[in-house]
Design a protein around this nucleic acid. Sequence first.
DNA 1: CGCAGGCATTTAAACGGTTTAAGGAGATTT
DNA 2: AAATCTCCTTAAACCGTTTAAATGCCTGCG
Lengths: 342, 342
Amino acid sequence: MAQKIKLSTIAETLGVSTATVSLALRDSPLVAAVTRDKIKEQARALGYIYNRRAASLRTSRSGIVGVVVHDIMNPFYGEILKAIEAELDRDRQTFILSNHYDSVEKQRAFIETLLQLGGDGVIMSPAIGTPPEDIRLAEDNGMPAILVARSIEGLDVPIFRGDDAYGISLATNHLISLGHRCIAMVGGTDQTSTGRDRYQGYVTALRKANIEVDPNLRIPGPRTMQGGFEAAVHLLSLPQKPTAVVCWNDLVAIGIMNGIARAGLVPGRDISVTGYDDLEDASIATPALTTVWNGQAEVGRSAARALLDKLNGSHEPDGIHLIKPEMRIRQSTGPLRSTPHD
Amino acid sequence: MAQKIKLSTIAETLGVSTATVSLALRDSPLVAAVTRDKIKEQARALGYIYNRRAASLRTSRSGIVGVVVHDIMNPFYGEILKAIEAELDRDRQTFILSNHYDSVEKQRAFIETLLQLGGDGVIMSPAIGTPPEDIRLAEDNGMPAILVARSIEGLDVPIFRGDDAYGISLATNHLISLGHRCIAMVGGTDQTSTGRDRYQGYVTALRKANIEVDPNLRIPGPRTMQGGFEAAVHLLSLPQKPTAVVCWNDLVAIGIMNGIARAGLVPGRDISVTGYDDLEDASIATPALTTVWNGQAEVGRSAARALLDKLNGSHEPDGIHLIKPEMRIRQSTGPLRSTPHD
DNA sequence: CGCAGGCATTTAAACGGTTTAAGGAGATTT
DNA sequence: AAATCTCCTTAAACCGTTTAAATGCCTGCG
């Protein structure tokens, strides 16, 4: 590489000041059109590269937005991220992505890095056990935060997520209406607000149908296909096998269906299974998965929009924005059979 | 937010110079231990946040590494990314992630952004049709590039990827040894070096077994589950149905198995299917997927290591580093049946 | 002819760190 | 008491941009 081309390089070769060059490149009306064109042409010819750190040092806007979620490889977050990316792209914001794998330390390290880089804002799906101070650290240093998919108590930042209690009650009611009464709930944890809300939705639906809630049928676990697969083994070993399963998400559901199939049973006929999220893969699974649409794209888009609006000065109302989930009925659920397959 | 705490704030409250503070915070032996401790304590107390853009403006090292791949939601890249992330983390590098979705423009925009931010280096799985100049743009501006998973002709940057021709020949030979002679190859494109290599591996294996290559059995397409699902429909409509399918990757294979199952056939018995990559999900699929381990974690780890070494001055040898794939035989492949199921 | 006003450009001071040569204070040697 | 040596600390330049204020230069007008 020759030596770095900077504003002053262009300025000198053209016999103008760096101020003029700076203004010209940003299309300021302060500089004459003919000068502007000459400068732009020269910048291109020299292969000038704008130095954003220098600029942002001066302007204190970096054009960087941080996004941190549990695991970007999880398609649920993937779909949210895709929507965020699309929205931020339209406003030319660079986004920095990270997993926290539910480690509060890793998450805080990310927030600190982002602050050091002068991030303009952060969108996060907070790690389990995130102390409110970690979010305030960002806010107090002029970096607004938006929460997605999970809530934290004791903060008044904007939150975008699905209505979990309602969503799970949809799935549970669907199974009840098919005649099922022994319904397990598999995957996830009750340590997150999401987890508590979902369990609540499940319990409420059962109670309303006068079905006794059996705590043994609540089986927490990883929110992955692998987790579902293993839960299936456990479920099939219970003294009273459930006839239906409400799953934390589509991955768990697909894992369970694989586990059921591996045991020689037919999911959707011998045991009904519902997913959650309505991922792209849900309709391809065999049998096609009955699930609950959770509006990931909507969540991501709105969260990004809210942040951008906030950065541009509009006053977005804080507080929780709930997306209403919708039922997607496919082939993985079916009526209760009087003589369950063995 | 109060006002920003900077080096000078600490310096003033302690009655020392900013130089001392700067040196102390970075553990320079130039400053007395007792002074250092006092300064660090004060920095913590005031909630000082290091301003990396200011620092990097002076030092011209940003601690930022860019990573751009086709699609981070694709688990193949996900596994590579995870390994890269882990390796970069150990060296405290922040990484900026982006998809290019095989758009050369999007990829170039990313490289330019990264240059503006003063990125120290970039790891990329180049978009189809990437002109070598785009990579040179990075290198010429002092930002070394490392390629993963895909090659580009006419460059001498380090490349880390699996040995595709060899890998596909493993899968093809496995099917041939099971007695199959009508073997389709599904998914991907022949416009990438990877695609050409894989097709070559398939053709070579067939020829060596004296099997005529039928171009109609090469069915390019998306590298997704959805793509596989749709290809299954096409395959089953062929006048002479293939008895085995070599798939571009595990996603396509799982999609095909779902398509086969939906048509009432049993994958692994009626039609053998091989995947590629050995994703985590491969062993959970039903039936468990026979596939080729492609060393994603190894690729990611080595690539990140190579970049870090390069940044630290060691001279990593350029050129292609091939990872040797290995066969993983499971239940989705089986011997040719004399009277294929209808 | 002197001056107000408009336009195009320049000056110079930030922004918040890092770096290095030079300075200062004691302690030690001569 | 002067000279030398060790440690610590600091002043000042620098990184590449932005921006408020200042400067020329013209033109038009009373």
